[in-house]
Amino acid sequence: MSAMPRVVAINTFREAVRDRVLYNLVVFALLMIGAAILVGQISIGIERLVIVNLGLSAISIFGLVMAVFIGVGLVYKEIEKRTLYTLFSKPIRRWEFLVGKYAGLVLTLVINTVLMTIGLAAALLYIGRSFARADVSILIAVYFILLSLALVTAIALFFSCFSSPLLSTLFTLGIYVTGIFAADIRGFGALTSSAFLKGATSVVYYLVPNFRNFNSIAAAAHGESIPFSLVWQNTAYALIYIVLLLIASSAVFSRRNLK
């Protein structure tokens, strides 16, 4: 990354740390400890399934909350508080600032996710499992979660360039939920006889990122292997959306009169 965005990214990460964002890890750790102790006592043979399912779901939800709620304030807060006045008097372009803010939040999410994954691994060790080859799918599932979080962050950042945090949150979550059900929506359109509905649902399907593609939690929990082709497909899929969203964000933001 070139110098300007990196400086902004590191500061964004520092802000998250000082705002005690990483404290969510404490909650996650307690959750894992509680779950590990509980399943150790009650279940026979499905400990791994329960722990992996719970752990990955928590990683995904915690990350989603963080990506949305920090993401929608990334740009908005700097405009509102006018911290951008001094920043933009430095030799930094507006898109460099956006990329820096984006990278800073993604960095925060990556570190948070890595730490939670270590917590999940510790819980698996606690319930007395040594790691096996099949556990690679847990790591792949975590990677997919990170891809989806990076994409959600890009969506939140895009909205935060021109609307209030509340609206941005609604828009971002709306797109996320629509994206989860994208395939169902198209399926519904295919069932109707209305050409309009068929068309509209297809447009939604192709426009909104299909977030279900990034969900391999079930496969990982059952120890199934995840095809490697899916890894690069998902990576490319997320990257295309992210790049387009960042370009759109900077197009909007670069023309904007600051408050």
Partner: peptide, 26 residues
């Protein structure tokens, strides 16, 4: 260099950190 009217800065930074941050852009 620019001093805005009623400047406002990242309040989670110390003065030293803030100035170091701005100096990085140079």
């Amino acid at each position: 260099g620019y001093l805005p009217e009623q400047p406002y800065f990242y309040d989670y930074l110390t003065a030293r950190e803030l100035l170091d941050y701005y100096a990085r852009f140079s």
